[in-house]
Design a protein around this nucleic acid. Structure first.
Lengths: 127, 127
DNA sequence: CTAACTGCAAACGGTTTGCACCTGT
DNA sequence: ACAGGTGCAAACCGTTTGCAGTTAG
C-alpha cells in the first residue's frame, strides 16, 4: 500500500506554499537533498491521488495543488505567472454541456508582457 | 534568402486543410516521403514567418494556421480536438490591459469527454 | 556559383524505468 | 520479513543540430 512519505509531503507543501505552478526542477532547487527521480515519483503519486494536478507548456510540466484553478497570465519575458482574477470558463463549459460534452478541467493561459517587462522594453526602444 | 519551398508549402497546406492542430508526427504520416527533420525545419520556418503558430500540450507541440484561434475542447478519451465556437479571451485581455499588462496570445483548452466517448463509457458502466 | 534545402545520424533535455539497496511497519 | 520508497545510471522520446550531399536561382 502506497504511503504519503516525508518526501511526498514535502513536495506537496512546496506546491501549496507557492502562488504559481512549479516544475520538477523548481522543486528540486528547493530541496536539493531529494533526487529528481524521487521528486518525479512523488509528483506522480500526488497526481494519482488527487493532491495535485499538472499541465504542460513549452517543454515543461507544471504542477499545482488540485484545488487551485488553472487560469494564468504568463509573461514571456521574465517567465513569471500571474493568476487571472476571474474565471470565465464556466460560460464555455455551459456551452459544451448543451452539446453533450462533459468538461472536466480547463487550462487558460494568456501570454504577453507583464507591466514591468513592458516598461523596460519601452525604455530600451526609446534609447 | 529563405524560400517557401515545395516541402514547406506542403506542410502549410496540410495544416490549413486540417480542422484541428497537428503534431510534426501527424504531418509526417500525411507525407512519409518527407523526413521528420525537414518537417520540423519547415514548421520552424512557417512559425518564424508568421504562417503558422504552435502550442505545447502533454508532451507534444501542436501547429495550426496563425489566423485560426486557439480555443479547444480536447476529449481525453479519443484525443480529438473540437474548436470552441466563442472566444472569451477578450474578456480576460481587457482586464489585463487595465493593469498595464500586454497580452499577445492565448491558449484555452478545456478537457473532458466528447459526447460519443461519454456515451460509450456510460454503456460500459451499465454492463 | 553559391546560398539555401535536405536527410542521416548523433546529440539534447526533460522525464521514465530497471535495479540494487534502504526503510518503516 | 517484506512491501514500498529511494538513488543512480541508463533508457526513452520528441525535438534539435552537425555535417555532407543536393538543389534552385
Amino acid at each position: 500500500m502506497e504511503r504519503l512519505t516525508k518526501n511526498r509531503e514535502r513536495v506537496k507543501e512546496i506546491l501549496c506554499n507557492s502562488d504559481h505552478p512549479l516544475t520538477a526542477y523548481d522543486i528540486s532547487k528547493e530541496c536539493p537533498e531529494m533526487s529528481l527521480t524521487t521528486i518525479y515519483r512523488a509528483l506522480d503519486y500526488l497526481v494519482r491521488n488527487g493532491h495535485v494536478k499538472s499541465f504542460t507548456f513549452n517543454e515543461y510540466t507544471y504542477f499545482l495543488p488540485s484545488e487551485r484553478h488553472e487560469d494564468f497570465f504568463l509573461c514571456t519575458s521574465c517567465g513569471r505567472f500571474f493568476q487571472l482574477e476571474h474565471c470565465f470558463a464556466s460560460s464555455y463549459e455551459q456551452n459544451l454541456r448543451e452539446k453533450g460534452m462533459v468538461p472536466k478541467d480547463h487550462l487558460i493561459l494568456i501570454t504577453g508582457f507583464c507591466s514591468e517587462c513592458n516598461e523596460k522594453l519601452h525604455l530600451q526602444t526609446q534609447m
